[in-house]
Each structure stands twice: as C-alpha cells, then as structure tokens.
Design a protein around this nucleic acid. Structure first.
Lengths: 227, 227
DNA sequence: TCATATGATTAGGCCATACTAATCCAGTCG
DNA sequence: CGACTGGATTAGTATGGCCTAATCATATGA
C-alpha cells in the first residue's frame, strides 16, 4: 500500500509548505512560487529552495517556471495537517471556550506538535465532527475530504434561498464582524439585491436584513437551501 | 521589574536546555555539561555551544569547567515550561483518557507549542490543580513552586508510617508496574522491613504487602503520614 | 609533585531554513 | 518578431542546532 516504508517525520516548515500548496492548487492545478511565498510570508528564493527539496523527496511535482502540485503522498500529508488543524479548532472552541476569531493561531502552532493519537482522542470526544467552526469539511483520518460545490454569496443569483456553509477567512476582525451580523455557517438567507459595479449584496436572514460588501461576499460560500 | 523588556521567544531547544538545567541543578548548585548532555541526549560539545549562547543571553551563569546555573530569568522560563508540562499531563489524563504511563511524551511535544492562554484555560478547566499525575508540584503562573521535603522510600526508617507523595520517573514500564502495585501518589504505607546490602524495602499498604527493590525505592518520595 | 584520566572546550563541518543580490526565462506588446 | 518585464531561479551568506576529532584543564593518586 505504501511506496516507501518509513519516511522521516516531516519538519514544521515542510508541513506548512504542503498545506499552503494544497490550498493554492485546490482550484487551479498548479501553485505558483510567488503565491506560496506570499502565503507563508517568505521570500520567493526560499520557496524555490524548498520546492527543490520537496520534489526530491517525492512530496510534490515541480514544473519549472510553471508551479508545483502535490503528489499523492504530499496530498496525504497535507490533508493530515488540515484534519489536525480543523479538529483542534473545534476542540478549542467547544471544550476550552476559545472563540471563533481567535482559535486559528493556536491551532496553527499545535497542529505541528500533536500526535495522531491525541487528534483521534479529541475527535472522539467531540463526536467525530465533519466540519470545523468555519464550516470547512474535516478530512477523515483515512485522508478523504468532502468536495461540496458552493457559490460565493457575492455571485449568487438574486432571489435564491441559500444556506451559508463556509466562511473562507481566518482573519479575526472579519470573523468577529461576521459573527456579529449572524453570518455564520448554517445561516439561512435569501438574496434580495445585488448592486452594480462590484457593489454589495443584500440578504434577508431570520434576524433581519444585511448588506454584504463585495470582499466579504466572496468569502461566504453558500449552497441552495434545502427547503 | 524586568531587565530587558522584550525577549525574543525562546526556541524549542533552548526551552529543553533550561528545563534540563533546572532539574539537574535543583539539588546541587551546578549542572555539569556531561549531565546536561546525557539528559538531552546530545553530545557534550553541543552543550558547550548552547551554554555559550545561553549565558550570553543572560539565561544561565556559566563557570567554565564547573557547570552552569540558571539566572532568575532562566529559572522563570524553566518553571514556565514545567508548569506547562505538568498541566498538560493532568489535562490529557483527566479530559482525554490518557494514562499515567503514556502521557509524558505527548506533553513533552505540546509544551513547546501551547500558548499561555491555553495553559491557563486548561488549568481552569481542571480546577487549578497543584500536583501533576506523578505527584510533582505544579508551579503557579507567577512562577512559584512548592518545595516539600520528602524522603525516598528506600531510605525511610523501618517502622514509620508514610504517605507516598511523588513518583520520580516518567518511564512508562516503571509507571505501569508501580500503578499495578498500588504505589501511586496518595498511597499510605508502613515500612515493615529493610533488607541489607541495597536490598528491598518491604511495606504494608491497605491492599497488602509490597516488596520494593532499591532502584524503585529511590523513586518513591514519601513524607510522614498525617495520622 | 607530577602524570594521567576524565570531563570541558575549541576547531571544523553539516543540514535545514531563511535572506539579498544577481541572473535567467517566457509570454506579451509594440 | 524581438524587447521588455515580471516572476523564477541561482549564487552567495547567515543562523540555529547538531556532530566528530582534537585539544585543554583540573583533580586525583602514585
């Protein structure tokens, strides 16, 4: 089942690169050097260097001047980190009173230090959750992840009824604001207006009417509400 | 109150050195290079190198060819790590079902990744425990630690009644064995015999009589039982 | 009192990871 | 269709942490 029997454990840095590459290549096929660099807050030459090593160890595929993609092995490792991160976020919120907006940073550090066993214990204690606090799907221990097809609120058709499923940011300020507006995963909403020239979208939710600007509208991933 | 306003955060390695030095110098005044090296499983030259840097940054005091001691600052940092470690151990056991013998390794990795906030949340969730699962005192957030004077079972006078307070090992095999014998912190026991030539100590506990060899006897720290 | 052994330190490297400065490639526009 | 420009890469350097081999200091005992 596994090609190489005993990998050395990945370093913290390698784990971060794999996660970044996973996120960047999840839409288009290739992650570009500059995007990885921006994502990890590191210089492009540092990325080039790391890319070289990662492709030598078989975690990524590199097409020079085009970008990189994860191999099956790299994808497995990335999904493991994402599972860790998301389970940690749920755990910290539900068991330790963290809040939506502050949990990311803590999980970011812990994900590199926890054992598989601890993560599975946390998952069990939580009843094996399928989504993290932002609505993102949690990969299974076996490395499978749900692929939902969602549409950003900013692009949803006027008149449709939607369920907000996922909030695509970890920025505390934005998260706080959104929570204050009742724009959290699970919220049911109806799109009532869209203003032109990248203007806001207006929605109605149970608690009232909300005006959502373009930027935030792009972060709010929705699907047709089950009526 | 503090000499240098904003320390850079300590690296994982530095944190480990400080903890090791704390433990080694807690009895005698100085920690020797070779002992630090053995404790951390690194070579003596590596220790010399690190010692140089640590004394430059004011965390330790180095007397060449004699050994090192923590400065007030170093001691504070070491106690912080020890607090983290011990709170984590209690938390993992009480909230996540870890057992006595397996918890050390997990705590060892996590202690470098958790924030102060997380530790204080865990401590609160546990009711601010004063002792870890092995009976070791947990330093306060302010950096104070209880100094009990305990005697190893192997050196306790025959005939005395004792309370087992602290078990001085993290070795899983020894911990499992001791738990099986009912030799856990809080156990009340009476010393009935001591055999010569580094022979075993025999004790009576509620559950029965136990024979404790020299090596383990040195790890079982006791105090006169409150009668 | 001095030789020796033990432990400490210095010398000299290596690897992972990052940086800046310099160079190179590829796709776009004139 | 060639020049430019922006992104990618290579060159060269730094730092933290570790190693082995070589050297040095100290304390002991002959």
């Amino acid at each position: 089942m596994q090609a190489s029997l005993h990998q050395p454990p990945l370093t913290r840095s390698v784990e971060d690169y794999l996660k970044a590459i996973y996120h960047l290549s999840s839409q288009g096929g290739f992650a570009a050097t500059r995007d990885i660099a921006a994502n990890l807050d590191v210089s492009p030459p540092s990325v080039s260097g790391m890319v070289k090593r990662l492709s030598e160890t078989g975690l990524i595929e590199h097409v020079p001047y085009r970008g990189v993609q994860l191999t099956a092995q790299g994808r497995r490792a990335a999904l493991k980190m994402i599972r860790r991160h998301r389970i940690l976020e749920v755990y910290l919120i539900q068991q330790l009173g963290y809040d939506w907006s502050s949990v990311h940073e803590e999980a970011e550090r812990l994900e590199h230090a926890v054992s598989d066993e601890l993560i599975e214990r946390m998952a069990r204690a939580l009843g094996d959750p399928h989504y993290d606090p932002h609505g993102a799907p949690i990969p299974t221990a076996a490395g499978e992840i749900e692929e939902a097809d969602l549409v950003p609120l900013a692009e949803a058709r006027v008149g449709t009824q939607l369920e907000l499923r996922q909030v695509g940011t970890e920025d505390p300020a934005r998260l706080d604001y959104l929570a204050g507006q009742g724009l959290v995963p699970g919220a049911l909403l109806t799109v009532t207006e869209r203003h032109p020239f990248n203007g806001p979208t207006v929605v109605r939710l149970a608690e009232g009417v909300r005006v959502v600007g373009r930027e935030l509208g792009q972060l709010l991933w929705c699907r047709a509400a089950a009526r």
